[in-house]
Amino acid sequence: TELHNSSSMASTMPFSAGLVSLGFPPPQHHSCRLQRYQRPCTLISSGGLSDGRNCLTVAIRHGQVKAMAGVSMDGLARPQAPVAVVTGASRGIGRAIAVALGKAGCKVVVNYAKSGMEAEEVCREIMESGGTAISFSADVSIEAEVETMMRAAIDTWGTLDVLVNNAGITRDALLMRMKKAQWQEVVDVNLTGVYLCAQAAAAVMMKRKKGRIINIASVAGMIGNIGQANYCAAKAGVIGLTKAMAREYGGRNINVNAVSPGWVASDMTAKLGDDIERKALETIPLGRFGKPEEIAGLVEFLAVHPAASYMTGQVLPVDGGLSI
């Protein structure tokens, strides 16, 4: 068992009507499957005319779809929506975060390693809420793939404003029986992946002197957990890395914070069994598991809310009181 596994608005007129009014054809959904090191696998765009002012247009040329910032009906340029990369976003907490940011107005890169169909479903959910998203396959533990993913976000939307490091895996075993491969694989994805993604994203953010990075840690990295020495060590490393990054990037107006979930309802917790679930609930003062949407709400606040602009280097437990 584990405490947390991270691999785990205004009135509008129809978007098509808005495009037609500006002389564009209605938007289309283009989907293609590409190999790694290439462009995003899927781009789904949607938008609207909020109170008759803001719009999002879609250019379609040679089978490629590209989202562009629109021009308001009064002819004045409007600020672009924030561009966010969410790693491990095809399911669980990552999915909830991607959807929340899409609904909040972000253009979202939905990263996945293997779950392509699930990632496309996340994109569709964001689209249905009026947002814009692309899915992108990349292993966050491989530097070249991380760099390609960040370039894809910039090539598609011109910038990068938010990074959510959520991708993570587990390879559970008691420490005395844990194979080196089990240790290394978890550290490579859960810790080195955060380093690689943050380094690549910060290179862009530092030039713009603006950006927000949110790392998904775990209460396991704060209090430990039997059978998860590799996972606990990696998540504790994420907490230390978050604080170091906050100090290094603060001078460039980049906020770096971490969220540490505890027990969160998921497919995994549904299979725990009544006895294990009861014992887990006894350790939580609120007496229940958290919901992915509760984690996503805090991440959304840290990522886009103006009130979070003076927060950096913080580690925020969302665990129902488990770490008290």
Rank of each mutant, 00 (worst) to 15 (best):
R36P: 03
G92T: 02
H29G: 07
T1K: 12
N165V: 03
V238M: 05
E120P: 07
A244S: 15
L56T: 06
E282T: 09
T57W: 07
S90G: 07
D155R: 10
E118R: 05
V58S: 06
V264F: 07
L56E: 04
N190Q: 08
I93K: 00
M206F: 03
P82Q: 05
W157Y: 14
G193N: 03
R124H: 12
R124N: 11
T269H: 09
G290K: 01
R39P: 05
I134K: 01
R171W: 13
K209N: 13
Q182K: 14
W183A: 07
M311F: 14
I295Y: 02
L281M: 11
V187G: 03
A303R: 02
A10N: 11
M205F: 01
P261W: 01
F289A: 13
Q64F: 14
M268K: 07
G88R: 00
V65C: 07
V83L: 06
R61D: 09
M73L: 12
Q228L: 15
I169A: 06
Q80T: 11
R278S: 15
T159N: 12
G23E: 07
E277G: 14
S31P: 04
F15N: 02
T156I: 08
V238I: 08
S129G: 13
R151I: 04
K243L: 02
M73G: 04
Q182T: 12
Q35A: 15
R151G: 03
S135L: 03
A84Y: 00
A220Q: 12
G52K: 02
A296Y: 04
I223V: 14
V109K: 01
K114W: 06
G168V: 02
M9E: 13
V71Y: 06
